[in-house]
Design a protein around this nucleic acid. Structure first.
Lengths: 170, 170
DNA sequence: TCCTATTAGTTTCCTAAAGATACTTATCTC
DNA sequence: GAGATAAGTATCTTTAGGAAACTAATAGGA
C-alpha cells in the first residue's frame, strides 16, 4: 500500500512487536529475557526478532563464544521508533489508565522535570494537532491518493451534533 | 499487562485498526467506503469498527432514517490518536520510503510551512529523544515494573562496537 | 407491480497464524 | 556424569483472518 503508515505497520504492526521494542528500550537484550518478561511464545518471539533484524531495526551482537551467542540491540533506525512508543504510552496514560495507576513516568534530563511528549511543527515549533494540519500530495502520490486527498478533511466535523430527524432523508 | 503501551495496543494494536483510523482522519466514514478503500474483509472490518466504538474511539452517528444508517466519527479520544499516526507516518517516510516517493505531506496551517512532526518536552519545549529521557516509577508501578526500571537504560549502548574475541568468554 | 440497486452488516467455509509444550545443541558447573 | 543455561526448532491444537454468498430494509425505475 502506498502509505507511510502502512509501510511502518509492515515492520512494527504485528502483535508483540512493539512490546518487544519497549523492552529493548528498557535495556532487555536477550532471548530468554524477552521470553520471561513478556510471556510470549518462543516461536513467535523468534519470528519477531528475525523480522526486526531483517528490517534492521535490531542487530545481533555476539556476547560470547563457544557457543557464539547474540544479544539484540537497537540500530539508529530502531532508536528512531521512540516517538511511536512514547505516543502510544501517552495515549494509554491519558485514556486507558487512571492517573494514580500510571506505571511509568519520564524525566526530561535536559530540564529536570517530569515530561509528557508533545508533537510540534519542525519549522515553527508550534503545536501540531488535528485542527492545524492539512494533508497534501507528496512527490510519490498515486492517483488514488490524490483522489482521496481531494476529499480529505483531517478534522471531520468531530462533534457534529446529532442529526435531527427532519434533516434525515425520509 | 500494567503498561500504558500494552493498554494502547489493546485498543489499536490489531492489524487494520490503525489503517482504518488513518482513513477516518482523512474523512472516510462509512462501512462501504472503508471496505472499498482498504480491501479489508467485511467480517474483520465489522469486528474492528465494533471494537473501536465499544472503546469510544469512534462513535456511530445516524445519517438517514428508514432504514436508519450510521456513519463512524472520531470522538475526542479518537482524535487524540493523531500523534501516534503522525509518528508512524514520519518513521515510514524516513526509513521505509525514498524521499521522492513520499505519498503525503502535511501543511502546518498556523505557520504555512510543510511540517514534520517532532516530539518535545511538555515542560520546557526542548526536544525529546532516547538521549535525554529517563523512565521512573509512576504512582501505579508494580513490583515487576520497579525491578525492570532499576536496570532500565533507555539508550542501551546503541552503537557498541563489535565485541572483540578476547573480550568474550572462551 | 416487479426488478434491480444500495448499505451495512452476518454466515459459512477454508486457510494462516498464534500458543503451549517438548525437544535440540553446545557448553559450563558441581 | 548430572544438571543448568541459552537460544532457538518442531509439533500439535486453537484461534483469527480472508473470500464469497446471504440478509434486511428500502428506493427508484420499467
Amino acid at each position: 500500500m502506498p502509505c507511510s503508515i502502512a509501510q511502518s505497520l509492515n515492520v512494527v504492526g504485528e502483535w508483540w512487536t512493539l512490546l518487544i521494542l519497549r523492552d529493548v528500550f528498557y535495556g532487555v537484550r536477550r532471548f530468554e529475557a524477552f521470553h520471561d518478561h513478556l510471556g510470549i511464545s518462543r516461536k513467535v518471539l523468534a519470528d519477531r526478532l528475525r523480522r526486526l533484524t531483517d528490517e534492521k531495526v535490531l542487530k545481533k551482537v555476539p556476547y560470547q563464544n563457544n557457543p557464539t551467542r547474540f544479544e539484540y540491540r537497537l540500530t539508529r533506525k530502531g532508536l528512531d521508533l521512540l516517538p511511536i512508543l512514547l505516543s502510544l504510552m501517552n495515549w494509554g496514560d491519558r485514556w486507558q489508565t487512571k492517573p494514580e495507576q500510571t506505571p511509568v513516568v519520564f524525566l526530561h534530563t535536559d530540564c529536570n522535570h517530569l515530561t509528557t511528549p508533545k508533537l510540534v511543527c519542525s519549522h515553527c515549533n508550534g503545536s501540531l494537532d488535528a485542527g492545524n494540519i492539512e494533508p497534501q500530495r507528496g512527490p510519490g502520490a498515486s492517483e488514488r491518493e490524490i483522489l482521496r486527498l481531494q476529499q480529505a478533511s483531517i478534522n471531520p466535523d468531530l462533534f457534529a451534533k446529532q442529526v435531527t430527524k427532519t434533516q434525515l432523508r425520509k
